[in-house]
Every structure is written in structure tokens, then in C-alpha cells.
Design a protein around this nucleic acid. Structure first.
Lengths: 360, 360
DNA sequence: GTGAAAGCGCTAACAG
DNA sequence: CTGTTAGCGCTTTCAC
């Protein structure tokens, strides 16, 4: 425990000094070799590499980070209850995408799942920033009045938002082009099938994408010359979706909707089954469309017609944007082009939960 | 960029020196205050706290870690494709549990999602260890011949396994008591309903829990005096489960199973719908039981009868075990009691996908 | 009760 | 080409 001389391989882990000693060179030589900076002869280089391999040594991430370089970690805070998280793989998918881009760069992802209590999320970001644990953070699900961009700026912590900010904001964000294409296609699909009374079950109204999608829905309806459809606001939970469907189907036959769009797949599946419990066949009596295109949609019966959104690609794009930002920050002077990452627009996937309207 | 004098608040973040300067004390005084070590007068203490608050300063995690203390981060490597990850919230749930225990301790979780290519997982652990990014790692899904425990030991990286090791091993592990209770109850339930031909669709055979559960299934059947049921091995994917059901239901009516147990809920749901597509009603023609009790099970129609497993609690227990291990390592001399964490045994949740056998 | 100084493992100037 | 050295931000003896 006490008195561990540098270079001694006691209980501790090998350090750069151990490697240098074993290779018979100085520490700076080792440093130069591992960082690929030139000025080292081939034989020396080889000796260093061998020594490092024998000792199973890699530079300590902590020491490198302290030295002023990067942390080689990105942070992400998920402000959701574990229940919602488990039902809705939105985050999981995004994280998969993020990781796939992070791994080759030897970056890690520091995840924080905090509850939905207000303030918890902010505290998490704050700690991430103050403790300098990460080089930057990736944000999702921006909300109306979202204070996170401001917060992160004041914390000087680079951020990339997946999605659109709630109001024009200099925050770097990634987003698929043609965001409204999915819902438009969904409405078109239903109209073509003869549906005239189409309802929309939206997510919590404090979400930016929720409001956006709802607006697209309303616009699309109007453009088709249809009267405004009913719009119900629901939580992202199954119970809430079930309640919404109950309400929708309680109307008189000539007034109730013949098709429903849901804000996400989980709600759509829950809603679909709620309808069935009420004696409505899907799609015979009611057509249902989801959003996200989760694997879940293919599992259920009938398979879900839904709007596909490439969350994995979005996650990758977010990381790419972050790296560009980090590089730009470092080089400061050279204003990197920062091309918008290519993300495919949302797209309608027609499966079994939509069919012709029963009565015009 | 150049020549940033200590104590200057330029573009950089405040350091302990800035706080000390602002409070008019020495850096060590600040350190003592933030670490709650005594020897500081109340007024001085207050001045330090005020200064830290004003500067929004917290100790840099990196510096603290380098100083020899802990990293305050745990690692986890998920060796699965993003697709499986998205369908099966197993990991998500576990991570939620882990986080809920980590957060109050101000610990972070460094996540690595690597593909299923062999070696990728090992490399990830290796890097985590060599770069000293985490204090320890949490493992799941131990496999037959799992080399990770050995690897981690040689890396001197503390580890906690969720589940049982494939062979007696000193690795610290957490697990619910009465592991076999769930499947036994499931078999009992089916037998009581009059089922005599019960099949089992197992997961990949290289998983320890897969083999264990299958054995429990076989034993339970034997104890009830039933002939061995058919056992099919499937991947953890929907397609694979669908194929298994096809095979099972292709048999002659007097030979085909009237009930099927699946290794997890996702497979069960996929199987249930495959059966329906083949013209079999669930539970009228076929009873189905899953495993895990994911939220998904309540979403679908009919709702899934399944074996509940408290993954969240398991995640929490794993972290608790890790902390005890870390404390023990530190104190070295004091062999902490290390009581087994309390995790509820798996339990059968009866819903709608099981019913009386149609023919004895 | 408080401060000065030595490192933790590494990188980057600067010498040789 | 290679070695010496000064910190990065913090904690921790050890003096005062």
C-alpha cells in the first residue's frame, strides 16, 4: 500500500514509467510512440510497443483527460421513468446509433437516467459539466420552453440536439429533412382508403415534436379538404392511449373516427388492442397508424402501419455533429464547413393495421 | 489560449485555486471544506462555500480520479445488436435499476454497446480496464464457457455478475432466490388447466440462464409425471420464434402441444401472433407463457401470461454489491459482511394468454 | 485552524 | 533522435 516507488509493479497498474523502464527509454519516447508523433526510430518504437503489450498498458484515460485533452466521453441524460423507457425503445435505438459512431473513435457514453421530477435533469447536466466528465452532451426530446440549451451554453458544455429546438436557437441540432413527409403520407394513405374522419392521439404537449406533428396533421387534413379531426392529448403511457381510444370510440357511429394516428408505436399498439376489447376490429372498423417503426410493430397482430424514423441514423448523425463541433472548438480559427448530416426523411410503412374505410 | 495564469477566469473553467482566491484562503482549505474533513472554522467554511457557489465550481472528476480516488463511474458492456436491444428491454430495465442506485452515489454509468462479433465485448472490457475509466463493471447474460470473469480478474477490474456464472466461480454475483419458482409455477398453472403436451421454446443454448430454465422445465414436467415436452432452440429474435411456432403447430392435432413456454416475452408475443396467423386462437387452441414480464405483455391482445422477474431490483442489487466490493477493496483489512442482497424470486403473472386445454 | 508542497499519470516544450 | 521537466486540478501529509 504505502511507498510504491515509480516503476515498481506492485499491486497497482502499470504506468507509462513502467513501460519506459522495460523498454529502456524515457517516458516521453513512450508518449511519442503511442500518440503516433514522429521522431522515434523504428527499433525504439518497436521496443516500446512490445513493452506496452507485455505490460498490457494503455494510457490512463483519466491522466490524459486531466492533461487538458478530451475526456473521450459524451454524456446523455434521459429524463424519463424506467417504465416508459422500457416500453419505448426510442432512447435505446438512439443510443445504439450513438454508440456505433462513438466506439470507433474510442469514445464512451456516460448515461444518466433521472426520473421525471423537474430539476433532476438540469442537476444531471450541471454535474456533468462542473465535474468535467464529458466533452459534450447529446440532447433529445426538446420541450417547449426548454432551458437546457441556455444552461449548457452557460456551462460551456458543447451540445447537440436531436430534433428541432423549440424556438430559433444557435444550438447545433440534427434532424431528418422533410420532417413532415411521414405524417402527410399517413394522411394521404388514409384518405385514399376512403377515410374522412381521422383522429390524432398526440403525446404530451410540452414536446416540440408533438406540437409539430400535430400541426402537420392538421395542415394535411385541411389541404385535403377534410374537416378538422379530433385531437386527443395523451401521456406516453399505454393506459393513457387506452383512455384516448375509449373516448374516441364512444361517439355515435356516424361521428366517430374511422382511423386514428398515434404519436408513437407504443401508444398505437395499446390503442389498437383497446379498440379490439371494445369490440372493434382493426383494420375493419378502425384503421391505426403509429410513429417510429419500432420492432414491436412487426411483432403484433395485425402488424402496425407506421411512420418509419431512423433513430439509429439520427444518433450517428448527432455524434458526427458533435465531433465536428469539438474539432471546430479546438482549432478555433478554422471554421469547419459543418455540412448537415444526411438523415433520411420519415417514411410511411404500410402494414396490416390500415384498411378501407367501412362507411364513407 | 496561451498563458492562462492560475486564478484568472478567462475562457477556462474555475478551478479550486479560483475558489480559494475568491474566498481568501488556501487551496487545501477549500479541499478540506468540500470533502467535509474537519479542521476548518465555521466562518471560513462558509466563505469557501459561498465562493464555490458563486463560481459554480465542483471538484473536477478527472482530477479527483487521477489523484488515486475512484472514477465514480461503473462500466457496462452490452454485446447485442441494436435490433435485439430495441425489441428486448432486458438491458434497459437493468440499466434503469443500476442508474437508480448509482445516481444518489453520484456515480455515472459508462455504457458500451458493441455488436455481437466475437471479441468485441472482450476488447471493450479490456479498454475499460486499461484506460482506468471505471471503478468496476457489471456483467449480464453469462454464457457457457464465459471467459469474462477470468479476463476481468486478470485485469484487476472489480466485477459483479447479474445472474449465475456458468460454473462455480469466485465472481461476485447477484441473483434472485428461488430461481426455479417461476417456471415451476408456470408448469403447474398449465397442468392445472389440463395441459399435457407442453412445449418449450428456449433461447440460444450458450446462455447459462437458458440452459438452467430449460432444465427446470424438464424437471417440473417429470415431477408432474408428464412425458418430456418438445424443446425447440430459437434465437432471441421474432423471426426465430415464429419459425419455432410453425414447427410446433405443424404436428398432428393429437401430437401437437396445447401450450408453449417461451424463454422471453418478445419471443412469446411473436409466437402468439404466429399461431394466430396459422389459424390458432390464443388461448383457445394454444396457451402461451412468456418470461420477464415486460410492459409489452400488457399492451398486446390477449395480454400475456408470463413469469415476472424484477430486473430493476436486480440492477440495484448489482450496484449495491459492487459498492460493497469497492469498499472492501479499499479497507482491505475489514472483511465486510457482504450480505446477499434481497431480490424477489420470479413469480408467475397470470393474464389472458393461458386457458384450459381443449382436449385432454 | 491554516498553508505550502509533493505528487497521481500523462503530454508537450525545450534541451541535449 | 531522445531525455528532462513543468504542469493539468486535486488531495494530503506535514509544518506553521
Amino acid at each position: 500500500m504505502t511507498g510504491r516507488t515509480t516503476g515498481r509493479r506492485g499491486s497497482g497498474k502499470p504506468t507509462i514509467a513502467d513501460v519506459a523502464a522495460l523498454a529502456g527509454v524515457s517516458v516521453s519516447a513512450v508518449s511519442k510512440v503511442v500518440n503516433g508523433r514522429g521522431g522515434i526510430s523504428a527499433p525504439t518504437r518497436q521496443r516500446v510497443l512490445d513493452a506496452a503489450a507485455k505490460l498490457r498498458w494503455s494510457p490512463s484515460a483519466t491522466a490524459v483527460a486531466l492533461r487538458g485533452a478530451r475526456t473521450r466521453a459524451l454524456g446523455m441524460v434521459a429524463g424519463r421513468s424506467s417504465d416508459v423507457l422500457a416500453t419505448d425503445p426510442h432512447f435505446t435505438l438512439l443510443i445504439s446509433g450513438i454508440e456505433s459512431e462513438l466506439a470507433p473513435a474510442d469514445y464512451g457514453l456516460l448515461l444518466h437516467i433521472v426520473g421525471e421530477e423537474p430539476g433532476a435533469e438540469e442537476r444531471a447536466y450541471r454535474r456533468l459539466a462542473e465535474e468535467r466528465r464529458v466533452d459534450g452532451v447529446i440532447l433529445t426530446e426538446s420541450r417547449i420552453g426548454d432551458g437546457r440549451f441556455e444552461l449548457l451554453r452557460s456551462l460551456r458544455l458543447p451540445a447537440v440536439l436531436v430534433g428541432a429546438p423549440w424556438q430559433p436557437d444557435p444550438v447545433v441540432s440534427v434532424q431528418a429533412g422533410g420532417q413532415d413527409a411521414g405524417i402527410r403520407a399517413a394522411v394521404d394513405h388514409l384518405v385514399t382508403l376512403g377515410h374522412r374522419r381521422i383522429a390524432y392521439v398526440s403525446g404530451p404537449e410540452d414536446r416540440v415534436h408533438t406540437v409539430f406533428r400535430r400541426r402537420v396533421f392538421e395542415t394535411a387534413l385541411a389541404e385535403r379538404g377534410l374537416r378538422p379531426g379530433r385531437v386527443l392529448v395523451s401521456e406516453f403511457t399505454a393506459q393513457s392511449a387506452v383512455a384516448a381510444v375509449r373516448e374516441l370510440l364512444a361517439d355515435a357511429p356516424d361521428r366517430r373516427p374511422t382511423a386514428v394516428l398515434f404519436a408513437n408505436d407504443t401508444m398505437a399498439v395499446a390503442g389498437m388492442n383497446a379498440a379490439r376489447r371494445l369490440g372493434f376490429e382493426v383494420p375493419r372498423d378502425l384503421s391505426v397508424i403509429g410513429y417510429d417503426d419500432l420492432p414491436l410493430g412487426e411483432l403484433v397482430y395485425p402488424q402496425l402501419t407506421t411512420v418509419h424514423q431512423d433513430l439509429i441514423q439520427l444518433g450517428r448523425a448527432a455524434v458526427a455533429a458533435m465531433f465536428r463541433q469539438l474539432d471546430a472548438d479546438r482549432d478555433e480559427e478554422s471554421p469547419t464547413p459543418v455540412p448537415d448530416p444526411e438523415v433520411n426523411p420519415p417514411e410511411l410503412v404500410i402494414r396490416e393495421s390500415t384498411g378501407p374505410a367501412r362507411e364513407g
